[in-house]
Structure formats: structure tokens, C-alpha cells
């Protein structure tokens, strides 16, 4: 008994702490993922489950990858995804940077309230946030009406429209992405901007810099880690997004997430879906490494 408790205190406890979560992640995260990688090399068959490792291509069948790289459908889907996510990331940066900077400039008590207001949407349903925009963008909504009136006032009569066709377009996808992912941009940016020493601003001013030069020479360069971390935090999930393009996107030019889902559920082509997924993941390795490299620096924890 003493022996066992001694062993537990010296090794067993640590082994348990490490082992349980480790095994869990190995079994329920890594193993499933390895199965997907294997699946991407299988052959589609009209059986259940709809694949086999035998047949014309014993074990390894690269057909799915060949199609991903040659079929225009997949290429277009990748481009649409990267394009939409990239534009959404830029817009989040353009709107989020001044917001984050503004948050560092308001008084302490206001800052806490405003930060809570930034985080609050996180706690409301993601689906419902997308849905809220479906209501606003629809043809008969007050928002669309307002925009339409504004448009009609500004342009010649010939260009007047009854409503602006916003839904089911890349515009809608990007708009909703900016809406749902903006907090992901603001928070790391705020973290990195808040850490900056205001004395550095004063030092630059003291050495003859006007406020905009202070921003360009001191604030902006030091917030680069925050910009990259926030940018990747928007870009990565946006590029793989399924819900937003399914609800407000253009069905004729699907994004990659939707393509994977369709390939899997509707076409029942598991190897194809897996191959697209693997390619998407490989594409995301770069941005992910960028993110993890800069994230620690943005939050100042090394």
C-alpha cells in the first residue's frame, strides 16, 4: 500500500495529469484526423460506407488530389474562400484598428464597459448573428430600403433600383464575416496596443514628431504582432466557414467549407471531401504558424 501511494505521488499523479487529456486528444482528435487523411487516398464505391481501399487502386489512390488540383470547381472554391476571407480580414483591420486604439484612449471605467460590449456578441448565438443580417439584407427590410433610397438619391434616374440585391452574394458573405469576426480582430489588437508604453509616444513627440508621425513611427510598427495575430484569427476560420456562405452566400460559387460539406453529404464522395479537407488544412498551416508566432508577442506573454 505504501509502495503504491509512494509511486502515485512520485510518478503516477503526473502521469495521470498528462495521460488523460493526451489520450483523449489522441483518440478523438488525432486518430479521426488520420482517418480523414487515409480516406483521402481511398476509392469511392457505391457501398456503405462508400469507400474502399481495394479495387483498381489498391491502398493508395491519388485520384481525389488530382481532381482538387485540376478541376476548376475546386480551384474556384479555394480562390473564393481565400478572397472572401482576405477581404473580410482587411475590412476587420480597417474598422477594428481604430476601434482598438480608441479603446486604449478612453477612460478606465468606459474602457471596461466598451470591452464588455465588444465581447458580448460572443455570448449570443453565432447563428442568430448571421440570421440578424439576413433580416437586414432582405429585399423588404428597412435597412435595404434605406440603402436603396440613398442609392436612388445619388445616382441618375436610369440606375434607380427597387431594392439592392445584397443576399446570396460574396458581398453578403464578407459583410457577415466582418460582423461576426470583428471581435477576434479587436481583442488581440487591443491587447497589443494597450501594452504600449504611452511614454514612447511622448518621447517621439518630444523629438519633434507630430501626432500622425507618432502613429506611423511608434504605434503602428509596435502593433504589427497584434495586427498579424488578429488578422489570422479572422482569416483562418473565415476561410473554412460553412454557416455564413450556406445562409447568405452565392450557391453558384461556393466557398470551400460548403464544398466539403456538399461533397460529403450530397455527393457521398468521402475520399473527395477528405482530400479537399486535407488541402485546405495544408493551406492553413502557413497562416496558423504566423498566428501562433505572433499571438504570444501580441499578448506580451513569451
Amino acid at each position: 500500500m505504501g509502495r503504491i501511494s509512494q509511486w502515485f505521488d512520485r510518478r503516477g499523479f503526473a502521469a495521470m495529469l498528462i495521460g488523460l487529456p493526451y489520450l483523449w486528444l489522441l483518440a478523438l482528435f488525432l486518430l479521426p484526423f488520420l482517418i480523414v487523411v487515409a480516406m483521402s487516398l481511398a476509392t469511392k464505391t457505391p457501398t456503405a460506407p462508400p469507400f474502399s481501399f481495394g479495387g483498381d487502386h489498391p491502398w493508395v489512390n491519388g485520384q481525389a488530389y488530382v481532381r482538387v488540383l485540376t478541376d476548376g470547381l475546386y480551384l474556384r472554391a479555394f480562390l473564393t474562400s481565400v478572397g472572401n476571407a482576405g477581404v473580410a480580414m482587411m475590412l476587420c483591420l480597417l474598422l477594428g484598428y481604430p476601434m482598438a486604439l480608441g479603446l486604449t484612449r478612453v477612460s478606465k471605467s468606459w474602457r471596461n464597459i466598451l470591452l464588455m460590449l465588444v465581447i458580448l456578441p460572443f455570448w449570443t448565438s453565432f447563428l442568430l448573428r448571421v440570421y440578424a443580417w439576413m433580416g437586414l439584407m432582405g429585399k423588404n427590410s428597412w435597412f435595404n430600403g434605406l440603402l436603396t433610397d440613398g442609392w436612388n438619391l445619388l445616382v441618375p434616374m436610369d440606375w434607380a433600383v427597387k431594392s439592392i440585391p445584397m443576399m446570396n452574394s460574396n458581398f453578403a458573405v464578407v459583410l457577415v464575416m466582418v460582423y461576426t469576426y470583428l471581435p477576434f480582430m479587436i481583442l488581440p489588437l487591443y491587447a497589443s496596443l494597450e501594452r504600449l508604453d504611452p511614454v514612447l509616444d511622448e518621447a517621439a513627440m518630444d523629438l519633434g514628431s507630430r501626432p500622425w508621425q507618432v502613429f506611423r513611427d511608434v504605434t503602428l510598427p509596435q502593433s504589427v504582432p497584434g495586427i498579424i495575430a488578429g488578422g489570422m484569427l479572422v482569416f483562418i476560420p473565415a476561410a473554412g466557414e460553412l454557416v455564413i456562405p450556406s445562409l447568405v452566400g452565392d450557391a453558384s460559387s461556393p466557398m470551400i467549407g460548403r464544398l466539403i460539406s456538399d461533397e460529403f453529404s450530397s455527393a457521398r464522395d468521402w475520399p473527395m471531401a477528405s482530400a479537399v479537407a486535407v488541402v485546405l488544412l495544408v493551406l492553413m498551416v502557413g497562416p496558423t504558424m504566423l498566428y501562433s508566432h505572433y499571438q504570444a508577442r501580441a499578448e506580451g506573454t513569451k
Binding site: 508604453d197 511614454v199 514612447l200 511622448e202 518621447a203 517621439a204 513627440m205 518630444d206 523629438l207 519633434g208 514628431s209 507630430r210 513611427d217 511608434v218 510598427p221 509596435q222
Partner: peptide
């Protein structure tokens, strides 16, 4: 501040962390 012929050596030194020694001095 930026128009005064008065310069300050800050208590924390306030050296720009993203610039080299030379760039700091030349700033």
C-alpha cells in the same frame, strides 16, 4: 511638444523597442 527646442531624457528612457540604437538616436 514637437515644436519645442526642448528634449527630454525619460525616466524609463522610453527607447523605441522596435528600432536599433542608431535609429533611435537618429529618430
Amino acid at each position: 511638444a514637437w515644436e519645442r527646442p526642448v528634449h527630454m531624457m525619460f525616466q524609463s528612457y522610453a527607447i523605441f523597442p522596435h528600432m536599433s540604437v542608431e535609429k533611435n538616436i537618429a529618430y
